[in-house]
């Protein structure tokens, strides 16, 4: 067994401990991935646990959303602390339909990014582009109305990897 393999195994277990629940896979020393699910199955994060975090509201602002909706959910930074990815330089958000985007650390440090799980108080369905969406505060920060951030505003999120 090579040293590299031993290190990889060590990192794997460290990740398991950090997340507090079994991680689906380990990518390098600090990386990991977690799936969002309805029940807290192995390697997944129940949406309810996100709902249990301090909630933030955000009016609809991005394109496609009809005006007047109110989204709510936890701050992405809080979720990352929850899943043990607080120190990750960036996270990759993957959607149900295969879409994915990389969100760098500076984004969530600079703006209050919301990982929304509810719309107008009810849980987001798939047709609402749930179960979770990353929302940039585009109403408060008009400079975010730009392709870069629109592309990072992933919806139908079902996995967070880092």
């Amino acid at each position: 067994m090579s040293l590299r393999a031993m290190l990889a195994a060590l990192a794997f277990f460290a990740a398991l401990v950090a997340v507090g629940s079994p991680a689906a896979m380990a990518e390098g020393g600090t990386g990991g991935a977690i799936r969002l699910g309805e029940k807290g199955a192995r390697g997944s994060l129940a949406v309810a646990r996100i709902d249990a975090l301090p909630q933030h509201e955000m009016p609809s602002g991005m394109s496609l959303d009809p005006a007047g909706l109110t989204f709510s959910g936890a701050l992405l930074s809080d979720v990352l602390v929850l899943i043990g990815a607080a120190d990750a330089p960036s996270v990759t958000l993957r959607a149900v339909d295969g879409y994915a985007a990389v969100v760098p650390r500076e984004d969530w440090e600079r703006w209050p990014l919301v990982l929304a799980t509810r719309v107008d108080g009810r849980p987001m369905t798939l047709r609402d582009r749930g179960p979770a969406r990353l929302l940039y505060p585009v109403n408060a920060h008009p400079e975010l109305d730009e392709r870069t951030y629109i592309d990072r505003s992933v919806w139908m999120i079902d996995e967070i990897a880092w």
Partner: peptide, 16 residues
């Protein structure tokens, strides 16, 4: 139902 939802979302996207 799930496939229909995803298809719907996709069409919504394209229409925008």
């Amino acid at each position: 139902s799930k496939a229909a939802d995803r298809f719907h979302v996709r069409l919504e996207m394209l229409s925008g």
